[in-house]
Amino acid sequence: MREKASTFAGEPEPSGPNRRTVLVGAVGAGVAGTALAGVGVGLAAPTTAPPAPQETLPVTLTVNGVRRSAPVDPRASLLDTLRDQWGLTGPKKGCDQGACGACTMLLDGTRVLSCISLAVLHDGQEITTVEGLVAKGEMHPVQRAFAERDGFQCGFCTSGQVTSAVGLLKENPRPSRAEISELMSGNLCRCAAYSNIVDAVADAARGER
C-alpha cells in the first residue's frame, strides 16, 4: 500500500515563500498547458540542497467531460486518484502492476493502464472511464455487444475490457478475429470468457462500420 501523505505532516514549514509554496503555486497556476513550463527546475542550482518532496500537488483533470481538481500526493497513481478522490470505481484495481488491464482508461482518447501512471503526470489531460461511455442513458455499442454476447462471467475485468475495446476500435476500426485476440491481450479474464469477448468486439466493430 502507498504510504500516506501524512508522512510529511511533521516537517517544519518555514515562514514566507519557500521552494515548496512557490512550486505548488506555480503548478496550480499552470493547468492550461504550456504555462506549466519550468515548474520546479529553474530554482535548482547545483549548490542548493535537493528539493523536498511535495506533500500534495494540485491536479486538474477533465474526467468524463467534467473538470475535477484535487490536491494529490505525487505518488498517487492515476487509478487511485480517480477511485479514491472522485469515487469513480468503474476502473478496477486488479494487479496494480500493469499486467491485467482491469484499470484501463482512455487518456486523451487513447487506452492506457492507470495503475502504472501517476496522476501528477496528467495534469490538464482528458480521461474517459467506463462510466463515461454511456451517452444520454444509452449503453455504448461496445457495452451492448458485451451484454449481448455474454462477454464476461464474474465481471471484475469487464470495465477494463470494454474500455480497452473502445480504444482498440479507435486504433483499428476493422480488426480481424486474430487481431482482436492480439490487440486485447493486455486485458486478462480469469474466468476465461475470451471467446465471447472476441465475439463482442467483433460485433461492435461490425456495428460501428
Binding site: 512550486l23 519550468g38 515548474v39 520546479g40 527546475v41 523536498a52 518532496p53 505518488r75
Partner: peptide, 17 residues
C-alpha cells in the same frame, strides 16, 4: 513508495539542470 519531489521542466536544458 518513498516520497519524492516531482518536477516538470519546460525545456531539455531545465531537465538536464
Amino acid at each position: 513508495m518513498r516520497p519524492f519531489h516531482y518536477s516538470r521542466p519546460g525545456s531539455v536544458g531545465e531537465a538536464v539542470r
